[in-house]
Write a protein that binds this DNA or RNA. Structure first.
Length: 679
RNA sequence: GCGCCCGUAGCUCAGUCCGGAUAGAGCGUUAGCCUCCGGAGCUAAAGGUCCCGCGUUCGAAUCGCGGCGGGCGCACCA
């Protein structure tokens, strides 16, 4: 008997057996054997609809075919019986003893490593203002993907790209200089440390919050006063030239706001390995290297006539993906000689695969975890302790880990950028890097929007200016927009969630101590992460405060509560001296359906993780966790453990509770949802 | 105009990849359940033209075609 029986192995065994039986009986080849879960456990644990497919060619009834399969199939290890059910399903009943036994054994510590490295790029927030929950959907998806890939044995590198020289930073710099009397980088440094700007303005939640308003105000001024738009151009030029006070201001500003973003994400348990900076892509001339390669390939040409005259363009007309487009060529270098964002992105993507022949310099980066809205002790310890690197402006340190050189690159970026991502992919393809193009994956997802009602509540709850235009007012939902100053800031929402979870805890405990505060934090973060992960990726989230602040039903706290309940049982047994790790010796039908449903769900986790990654549909992990919690709560109410007199029955239930505890802990780990001590 | 996504219970969503067993869950509503392993829970009821039409099929929420409604793309912006 193999000691490492698993549901995956059983499934594979069944698939082979069905395939062989069809081959033996009728010389029929099944391309793939689908195995689904029957609607009820009484019908079996796994079901194959193979007989329906075979019925077409064999011209027999599905039931008859399933019957022949059932009687001639050789059952693989872990399967007790094959039986015909329904109109012709071939259903399998597993050996419950065997699987429970296998599930009680701790999984081996060392996973088999898969070859290569996956880069997951996510977050990528412009470092010019506080982050909102749309940014958090991106970060949460990227983080869960990274966690799940790691669980499956992949080597993962998480990158958070910083556009520290773009127009968004420039606009806030312009606003600080022209509207907030900022003269020097020192002025910004003081504000970042908690002081006020030269004009006296400040924000209790720090510089990032202050800049949220500055950015929106600048955008308004641009609209009302055409001459003000020259500010942006001046700042961009100053940043590009370097060695002046404006460039210094931009650098200090973006670094301070990056710290705020990292603290906010750290509070939610989201770490990074590397922060590549756009300024370093420019400094290292990544583009000119990529430009050479593209010119050599002949796919990038200089237009001498037409509306793109004077531009270097990437020809896409021959590519099937771009067929039928009115204007299939993409400009990479403008007629004034400047480079588009897409062009830089192609160069950067080449670097990620180690194809550029140029590398960054690197240095360790220690963010200031106290960001104004966040205190350092709120940042998850794992995040604080994990080494963090960024690309270096000068020199760097010689002894750094190898970055880049990925075999697969996943860019987490919302659906509105699909076209650009396709162009980047095509850029690799025309250079002859077809494999890398295939392995350039755009993890596309829908955005988070506000309902007009949520926008009104935003104004009430945070005393914000109400910024909905009359046209927006009529829409079912409006997109969040930094430029419009419209959005639910992450730290504000976390505050609301914390208030709520503190209230709930206060109602249940005698005293509020440090442990209570820690639990309140775990619950608030669990609720927020689950809320952003439970929707399918193609579903636009129309944000609603009541829904996001709900702790009952299909929510993060429901999952956490199921785990805490299991722990309460273990604690109580410990106290009464009834705790045992012994595997109960039982046979036959001892594992009734309440118990068995939990074991099956727990055993399915590796498959759920694999499917979630393959389809990039991470909500399936959240759904599986919810189903597992439901099954546990059902079991909890029907099958008491502590008060159970019969030691055999008690041991059996306890064994299942332990299997559940480990499984739920695993799932919460994949979702990045913390485990509270008590609830 | 072309392309992508969404449309399933009063509301928010699973299920669509790979057609199959009575279409599920949460919230809300209604009615129950604490001498307990803490009720952030459990049990049950009510609630559905699966947007519409045509087609393929023994069988369609699921596949194809055509519509309708909503969102987003298709820059010498990022």
């Amino acid at each position: 008997m193999s000691p490492t029986l698993s549901l995956e192995k059983i499934r594979a065994g069944i698939a082979d057996a069905v395939h062989d039986a069809a081959d033996r009986l009728w010389n029929a080849t099944l391309d793939r054997v689908v195995l689904e879960r029957p609607p009820a456990l009484a019908m079996g644990d796994l079901a194959s609809p193979a007989a329906f497919d075979l019925a077409k060619t064999l011209r027999k009834s599905p039931r008859a075919i399933a019957g022949e399969l059932a009687s001639s199939i050789s059952l693989p290890e872990g399967v007790r019986e094959a039986r015909v059910e329904g109109a012709g399903y071939l259903n399998f009943f597993l050996d419950r003893d065997r699987l429970v036994e296998a599930m009680l054994v701790e999984e081996p510590a060392t996973e088999e490593k898969r070859p290569g490295k996956v880069i997951v790029e996510h977050t990528n927030i412009n470092p010019n203002k506080a982050a909102h929950i749309g940014h958090l959907r991106n970060a949460a998806l990227g983080d869960v993907l990274a966690r799940t890939l790691t669980f499956l044995g992949h080597r993962v590198e998480v990158q958070n790209y910083l556009d520290d020289t773009g127009v968004q930073v420039a606009d806030v710099v312009a606003g600080l200089q022209h509207m907030k009397d900022v003269r020097s980088a020192e002025d910004v440094r003081r504000a970042a440390a908690g002081g006020a700007l030269p004009d006296g303005s400040s924000h209790p939640k720090g510089l990032a919050y202050l800049c949220w308003d500055v950015y929106a105000d600048v955008a308004k001024v641009y609209e009302e006063n055409e001459s003000a738009r020259a500010w942006r151009v001046e700042v961009l030029h100053a940043i590009e030239a370097g060695g002046n006070e404006t460039a210094q201001i931009a650098e200090v500003l973006s670094e301070a706001i990056v710290s705020a973003h990292l603290a906010t994400m750290g509070r939610l348990g989201i770490p990074y390995d590397l922060l590549p900076r756009e300024s370093d892509i420019l400094r290292k001339n990544f583009w000119s290297r990529a430009f050479d390669l593209l010119k050599q390939s002949g796919a990038v040409v200089f237009e001498t006539e037409g509306k793109h005259a004077g531009c270097w363009v990437l020809r896409l007309a021959d590519s099937p993906e771009f067929a039928g487009m009115e204007e299939p060529d993409k400009i990479l270098v403008r007629s004034n000689g400047t480079v588009t964002y897409t062009a830089k992105d192609i160069a950067y993507q080449l670097w990620k695969f180690g194809l550029l022949g140029v590398d960054f310099d690197y240095e360790p980066f220690r963010p200031d975890w106290n960001s104004g809205a966040v205190r350092a002790e709120e940042v998850a310890r794992e995040v604080r302790e994990q080494p963090l690197w960024r690309t270096a402006h000068t020199g760097g340190v010689p002894d750094h880990p190898e970055f880049g050189h990925a075999t697969t690159v996943v860019n987490v970026i919302d659906v509105r950028q699909s076209y650009l991502q396709k162009v980047v992919r095509e850029g690799l393809r025309v250079l002859g890097y077809g494999n890398e193009a295939e392995r350039s994956i755009h993890f596309s997802y829908e955005t988070v929007a506000l309902t007009p009602r949520a926008a009104r509540e935003l104004a009430e709850k945070f005393q914000e200016e109400y910024r909905l235009s009359p046209e927006d007012e009529k829409k079912p939902f409006v997109e969040m927009s930094g430029r419009k100053g419209l959005g639910v800031k992450i730290d504000d929402l976390v505050e609301l969630l914390l208030e709520r979870s503190r209230r709930e805890i206060a109602a249940r405990r005698e005293s509020a101590d440090a442990a209570a505060e820690e639990d309140a934090r775990a619950i608030a973060i669990g609720a927020l992460r689950y809320f952003l992960l439970k929707f399918g990726k193609n579903k636009l989230i129309a944000f609603d405060f009541d829904e996001a602040l709900n702790f009952e039903g299909d929510t993060g706290p429901y999952l956490q509560y199921s785990l805490v309940r299991a722990d309460n049982i273990f604690r109580k047994l410990e106290k009464r001296g009834l705790a045992t790790d012994a595997i109960p010796a039982v046979g036959g039908e001892a594992w009734d359906d309440d118990l068995w449903a939990l074991v099956l769900d727990a055993a399915a986790i590796p498959e759920v993780a694999e499917r979630a990654v393959d389809s990039l549909e991470l909500s399936t992990i959240a759904r599986h966790a919810f189903g597992l919690a439901q099954a546990f709560n059902h079991f909890y109410h029907r099958q008491p453990i502590v008060s159970e007199k019969d030691p055999t029955v008690r041991a059996r239930r306890l064994a299942v509770a332990r299997i559940f505890r480990r499984a739920m802990s695993r799932l919460l780990g994949l979702l990045g949802i913390p485990e509270p001590g008590r609830m």
